[in-house]
Design a binder for these strands. Structure first.
Length: 191
DNA sequence: TAGCTGATTGACT
DNA sequence: GTCAATCAGCTAA
């Protein structure tokens, strides 16, 4: 069973933390690829100058709607990034999923990525992650609580430590500690 | 209409 | 360390 809608209807920061250890599942034409979430970043509303809620147009309806939907966008002209909309209606926020630890469909991921199936970089990084799972902007607006793209609760006890720090790769509102990752996990993207 | 920017990656010096 | 690839949507005009 996927995480319920109410899981997402909380502040983005809390959702980002709790998403660590959960499993992202993508079902594509019978083939299933899945990965454990090991790195996330929280983005807030208009007060957060790095958040797309502050300036991305077509995304506004999604951001201000109820949580639990996927926000996928294309950036730098070639990379898709996957977000989960967080917060309640009227309270925009989202969580960028930055890295996965592959748990299912490694062969399919490796084929899409063009790297060895045991590479720690299989789904490490927002752009790599979406390519590994075959996620594109066509998945924008997908319901994460039902359908082909869902997020399941942790498949094993959460015995890891949660580390936090400043977000990476952004040019605005740097300095907020809204990035979370699984301490010591080798699938966390490090630049 | 033209020009610019970006929550990136990978290849190269 | 630098840099190109490549595009949606903003901005200025």
């Amino acid at each position: 069973m996927p995480l319920p809608r109410r899981f997402y209807q909380r502040p983005a920061r809390a959702v980002a933390r709790d998403l660590l250890g959960c499993v992202l599942v993508a079902r594509r034409r019978g083939a299933i690829t899945a990965g454990r979430i090991v790195e996330t970043e929280a983005y807030l509303g208009p007060e957060d100058r790095a958040s797309h809620a502050a300036f991305r147009p077509g995304s506004r309806a999604l951001f201000y709607g109820e949580g639990g939907f996927a926000y996928v966008y294309l950036n730098y002209g070639m990379h898709c990034c996957l977000n989960a909309i967080a917060g309640r209606t009227g309270r925009p926020g989202c969580v960028l999923i930055r890295a996965l630890e592959p748990v299912m469909g490694r062969a399919a991921m490796a084929r899409r990525r063009g790297v060895p199936r045991d590479s720690p970089r299989l789904a490490s990084g927002p752009g790599n992650l979406t390519r590994a799972l075959g996620i594109t902007v066509r998945n924008n607006g997908a319901d994460l609580t039902a359908g082909r793209l869902t997020i399941e609760p942790p498949d094993q006890p959460r015995d890891f430590t949660i580390a936090s720090g400043p977000r990476v790769g952004i040019t605005r509102s740097v300095g907020l500690r809204l990035r979370f990752w699984v301490g010591g996990n080798r699938f966390v993207s490090k630049r």
